[in-house]
């Protein structure tokens, strides 16, 4: 006869253990881990490049020491773009996998000079669905959505937009050329996640980057105060 076994356990139990290990290590070292999630082509890598460049223009006392973990299905192009800026980076290839998982991030930490890092970005695989499901041990997730993708993304992908601490709207310079209603986009964000911080960024011209960096200042300070 079959017998009943109570489990009452998340499907992500193993993942949770790895995520906790990442969180514990980065907590001890005071490193802020930010998990960037957006569609392919939303401008995640370009946003990171612009953020890293803008960071080097800051006075030395206010400059973050950054590192990046790049997640892609294939190629090391993104990590090469980051490395070209002199920032330590690790590429994870998921070889078909549509998202990163905590054990991959945990392994990648070993390849980074964590003792000399304040801010660690993870650029997740381009996808608005699966990456939202997986805890990588990050301090928080950030949704990156671009103007040409349309104003309906928050409502179509509510799980992601509900989870994030911040929403970054990129490619704001394209607004005159596409049909995009900021009222609808931000209205839906407000309803799904009223406390999410909002940023408007044009990574090419540099608009909005200072606000984004100031947000990161606050979050890092808050983490280190704890």
């Amino acid at each position: 006869m079959p017998r009943l076994v109570n489990i009452r356990r998340s499907v992500f139990e193993e993942d949770r253990r790895n995520a906790e290990a990442v969180r514990e290590e980065l907590g001890r070292r005071g490193v802020l881990l930010v998990n960037l999630i957006g569609s392919p082509g939303a401008g995640k890598t370009t946003l990171l490049e612009a953020t890293l460049r803008k960071n080097t223009e800051r006075p030395e006392t206010r400059r973050f020491r950054c590192a990046v973990i790049e997640g892609d299905v294939a190629t090391s192009r993104d990590a090469e773009r980051i490395a070209a800026l002199g920032v330590p980076s690790v590429q994870i290839n998921t070889e078909g996998g549509c998202h990163l998982e905590a054990h991959l991030v945990r392994k990648a930490l070993g390849a980074l000079p964590l003792g000399e890092v304040d801010l660690l970005f993870v650029e997740n695989v381009g996808n608005l669905v699966c990456p939202a499901e997986f805890d990588l041990g990050e301090d928080f997730k950030v949704a990156v959505s671009s103007v040409p993708e349309g104003d309906d993304k928050p409502l179509k992908y509510p799980h992601l937009f509900h989870l994030v601490r911040a929403v970054i709207l990129t490619k704001t310079d394209l607004a005159p050329y596409v049909r995009f209603s900021p009222e609808r986009f931000w209205g839906d964000v407000e309803n799904l996640n009223p406390s999410a911080r909002r940023f408007l960024v044009d990574s090419i011209q540099g608009d909005g980057l200072e606000e984004w960096l100031s947000g990161l200042d606050e979050w890092l300070e808050e983490k280190r105060r704890r």
Partner: peptide, 16 residues
């Protein structure tokens, strides 16, 4: 509403 949880399973043990 965010659950993804294995509540219980029915299993057979060896020898059944």
């Amino acid at each position: 509403g965010a659950e993804l949880e294995i509540d219980f399973v029915e299993v057979e043990d060896f020898g059944e």
